[in-house]
Design a protein around this nucleic acid. Sequence first.
DNA 1: CCCAATTTGTTCGTATGTATA
DNA 2: TTATACATACGAACAAATTGG
Lengths: 241, 241
Amino acid sequence: MPLYRVVKRALLGAIEGGTYSPGSSLPSESELAGAFGVSIGTLRKAVDELSAEHLLVRRQGRGTFVASHSADRFLFQFFHVERADGLREVPSVELVSFERVRADEEVASALRLRAGDAVFQIDNRLLLQRRAVIYDRLTVSAALFKGLNEKRLRERSGTIYQMYQTEFGISVVRALERARATAVDRQIARVLGLPLGQAVMQVRRTALSFGDRPVEYRCSTINTAQHDYVNRLSKPNLGAA
Amino acid sequence: MPLYRVVKRALLGAIEGGTYSPGSSLPSESELAGAFGVSIGTLRKAVDELSAEHLLVRRQGRGTFVASHSADRFLFQFFHVERADGLREVPSVELVSFERVRADEEVASALRLRAGDAVFQIDNRLLLQRRAVIYDRLTVSAALFKGLNEKRLRERSGTIYQMYQTEFGISVVRALERARATAVDRQIARVLGLPLGQAVMQVRRTALSFGDRPVEYRCSTINTAQHDYVNRLSKPNLGAA
DNA sequence: CCCAATTTGTTCGTATGTATA
DNA sequence: TTATACATACGAACAAATTGG
């Protein structure tokens, strides 16, 4: 393994282990290079990759920071719904229900648990422009999120992923999504104000932390009458003309 | 603009202009650096970005090549449907119809044409494991693809994007996709063997060439009974343990 | 099978530019 | 203004992969 990857792993371990906490700044590149006993170019290459993976954020003149879950990051990295005309907006979230239940096969498989293990099941309604557009069912391991309850969930400030991070030390770093179309069932039709049987999109997301450890399974039901699910592919990096 | 971006633009222009054609190799890094009068590190940074954007492919010991549209590239960069169990497969394509028609508002807007401009409208049926799963309607400008006809389309070897590239000198470099759920209409229901009104996914893709120039508008209708639309997000680059 | 030439990949170190506080 | 941090640019040396003899 090349040296810069060794350094990258070490940095990753330090971030994961809490040596550098979300939002805080790392030592300067020259300090880090010195500490690892590598050249500054090698250190930079390690940071380059972590930065491309959204784990670090670099700011010229200021420093390098551990990425934290701002509303902006949520919008651009994890929220894939926008209005048909392209308007992007942070959704407002309404908690519908909070329950402690047993994992079924699907959830257990996604979260690498055993069927029957205790999980928290959180149902949310997401509003865009004051209209209910998405119904989310989040499932997380009760063992991993020990002490989570409805009160803490309601009283959080910021996004759910921000709460995972600040209150449980769990950082969601990326997600896998699989989408399909289906006819809406009665419960969700009611919550989203749709006729029964309307075609809706269902997006199943597994949110991963360091080392691809699954920490949340989410099934989103989207009313795509006025909105689209957007797949943001790699954008070239050309700079201004 | 930093020097490496100047070099990048120059390389991009040379690729776009056909100085280096798809599949062919570029001069070695040291030659290019010499030709541009920059250091090898600066040249490498330009190539790094073009490589990250899938416009160039580097192979240690062999050289740097202009990306071409292989079946593999199609599968990983542009084909987002896989079986629910994760099986990925290059679809087999059956031409359903080829017509020369007038662009409607939607197509014209996507392709930056005027409504009423001549376009080719190509309907394809895509099979996975011998079952029809996707119905594609491709629209391209007749002016841009001058001389395209059903015969040439049928007799192509390889993917459609490969044909765009080799026969028309048009390289699709990235794509934007917006998905929604809808009830299947009669025509497509018949072609995909679905009951009328079944919920299906509809994916509208605008395929872009250099400089974000739109070259194809594609509306895919997907039967998601056994398959999912997958959003491949950034994967970390950790190498083996 | 091995060797030599070629090409990209990695690592080093230094100097200078640019943004921020 | 000054100090600090990241960004860019240079050049050199060696490693690793590939190819052809």
